[in-house]
Simulated assay, not measured.
Amino acid sequence: MPPSRSVIITGGTAGLGLFAAREIAKAHPEYLVVLASRNDGDGAADKINAGLQQENTVYVPLDLSDNASVRKFAEKWASKNHPPIQALLLNAGLQFPGALQKNFEGLEKTFVISHIGHALLFHLLCPYFAPNIRVVVTSSGTHDPAKKTGLPDAVYHSAEELAHPPTSAVKIPGRQRYSTTKLANVLWTYALNSRLVRRVPERGITINAFDPGLMPGTGLARVAVWYQRILWFYVLPYIMPLLKLLIPNVHTAEESGHSLARLAVGKEVEGVSGRYFEGSREIKSSNDSYDESKQEDLWTWTIDYLSNGSDSDKARFESFA
């Protein structure tokens, strides 16, 4: 039988996204599970299918740092007779600990990959959402200074400053750009939720933000300097029992993948929206994340940027058509 629904997971070929994809594919063999990433060099989709003895997981290329790639993904989706999208997991992210990194359009890469590319993907795929679709945005506890995660505190002045850092902000540590972008993920989640409730309640779209915790060994630090990569990939994963004693929110990618899959398809969170989850627990996010002026700034800038002067696109994105 053809699949009845689709699930799309960005960054789905490794780490957290891979384990969430496997969990969803196992629980719902009747779903088409799409791994949307820059590459699938390890054959993640084939490995999931072989391990489950199913054929419902596929890989589709997507580079979130390039808006043209995001638009191409959406155009390809529109051209296929795929089943309606039941869950959209906006999961991909990357840290650039060193010097400022920009994409070819001149936008700061951390912000582009974690926020801009995901926001564009959401709006372009809106016409193909199933009723009561669930959207989950992977954020991080690093967005909250009260968590004392060891990363520099998130500092949000404006979306424009994140996208096009002024001269005064060029030397901001890359890890602060990451924590601030994770704050932007939560701000956008809340801004989107409030508009969905007001404008299209009949569609039943839900959106929540998710903190997977610290997951040593995942690909998040793959562009870090050499000694940080050694620590992340070859030391910390082997002392997980000790880390769990010292740090409350430490998990394997498999454990966090299970929690992410629960938000995507679990019955116990059906209809829940506009919330922040640490693993499987709903908790409060940072104080700044509830600042409606920051939510509004991010939403307005994002819509203006994505519509690129097109009144029709702006109206379409604002109405979730």
Rank of each mutant, 00 (worst) to 15 (best):
L243Y: 10
A191E: 04
Y276A: 12
S256V: 03
Y234M: 06
P212G: 07
P241H: 02
R281N: 14
E254W: 00
E282Y: 09
Q228F: 13
N208F: 01
T189M: 01
N249C: 13
P152Y: 08
Y276M: 12
T167R: 15
R262T: 13
Q176L: 06
S259L: 05
R199H: 05
L242P: 03
T218K: 02
A163I: 11
R222A: 03
S256F: 05
P216H: 00
S273F: 02
R177S: 03
K267N: 10
P165W: 03
V200W: 00
A159V: 12
N287H: 13
A224N: 01
V272T: 12
F233Y: 15
Q176R: 15
V235W: 09
V269A: 08
I230W: 14
H251S: 15
E268K: 11
H251P: 07
S158Y: 11
P212L: 05
S286C: 14
A261W: 00
P152V: 08
G150N: 09
V170T: 14
L243V: 11
T206R: 08
W188I: 01
H258N: 10
N249I: 12
N287G: 12
A264D: 06
N249M: 14
A221V: 04
L245F: 05
I207D: 00
G266Q: 13
S285Q: 10
V272S: 09
N249A: 12
G217E: 00
G213M: 04
E268P: 08
G271E: 05
L196P: 02
G217S: 02
E268S: 14
G213Y: 01
I207A: 00
I207T: 02
P166H: 11
V269S: 06
S194R: 15
E160K: 14
R203V: 07
S280G: 10
V155R: 15
P152R: 05
T167F: 12
L214I: 15
L245H: 11
L220Y: 08
I247H: 09
A163D: 11
E202Y: 07
Y227Q: 05
Y178N: 02
L183N: 06
H251V: 09
A221K: 05
E268C: 05
Y190P: 01
Y238L: 04
R281A: 13
T189N: 02
T181H: 05
V200E: 02
D211W: 09
R229V: 04
E254Q: 14
G150P: 08
G257N: 03
L196Q: 06
Y234Q: 06
A261K: 02
L220E: 02
P237K: 13
F277S: 08
A261Q: 00
L196D: 03
A169Y: 11
I205K: 03
L231Y: 12
N249F: 15
M240Q: 14
R199G: 05
G219K: 01
P248N: 13
Y227H: 15
L151G: 10
P165L: 10
P241L: 06
P241D: 04
S194C: 13
P241S: 03
T149G: 09
I172P: 01
E160F: 09
E160W: 11
R198N: 14
G271Y: 00
